[in-house]
């Protein structure tokens, strides 16, 4: 079975690229890249503002993907698997919860984001996708799990399409590399080499 990459999305360094073409670029020195991207996309989704940065980033990456591939919204509602990884887990929100805790306060709106997989939930809610998901925590240099598990989900017919990649937001730095993969002979082959190369771009 050959999995081909049918869409690329990357966010970072003040820009958004879809299939390696820049679709949005913020001016140098821009603050709050994620809000700027939101305003450009204008999805009319106020829940965005309750999300932490990790979830905002993942949400926006998939919004761009669905904008490029509107037919993804027409797929069977459990056909799409979300398979993500990052290195810092939810440590940004964890730090915020800890800071508040040091002052004797615990906010449920902060605490709920102290789990990295919440980004999967936000994407699933937005798109009404009831499919498989997995969240791995590890460095960019080791993405074998993302490849092996996504392939096995599709091979075992637990999913037809994978939205897979690295989503990291920590200390104001945002880094997203997502691929759409499916069984097809077109597009670059989805494997550790192609995924690692894309992450290194």
């Amino acid at each position: 079975m050959r999995l081909g990459i049918t869409t690329y999305c990357s966010i970072g360094h003040l820009s958004v690229k879809v299939n390696r073409k820049v679709v949005f670029r913020a001016a140098d020195g821009s603050e709050d890249l994620l809000k700027l991207i939101y305003n450009q996309l204008n999805p009319a989704y106020p829940k965005f503002f309750k999300m932490d940065d990790l979830c905002r980033l993942g949400f926006l990456g998939v919004e761009w993907i669905v904008k490029e591939r509107p037919e993804l919204s027409e797929s069977e509602d459990d056909a799409i698997a979300l398979v993500f990884q990052n290195e810092m887990s939810s440590l940004q929100s964890d730090s915020e919860h800890q800071l508040q805790l040091n002052k004797g306060v615990a906010s449920p709106a902060t605490f709920v984001y102290t789990l990295p997989n919440i980004v999967v939930g936000e994407i699933a809610i937005r798109n009404k996708w009831f499919g498989e998901s997995a969240f791995f925590v590890g460095p960019k240099s080791d993405v074998a799990m993302l490849v092996d598990y996504t392939k096995s989900l599709i091979l075992n017919r637990k999913a037809k399409i994978g939205i897979v990649g690295f989503i990291e937001s920590f200390a104001g730095d945002h880094f997203l590399r997502l691929l759409v993969v499916e069984e097809t002979n077109s597009g670059d082959e989805f494997n550790v080499v192609s995924l690692s190369k894309f992450i290194a771009e």
Partner: peptide, 16 residues
């Protein structure tokens, strides 16, 4: 469009 977490946050607001 407030939800269950917002309800809990309002409790935090009253307390804080």
């Amino acid at each position: 469009g407030l939800d269950s977490i917002d309800a809990l946050e309002l409790i935090v607001l009253l307390d804080q």
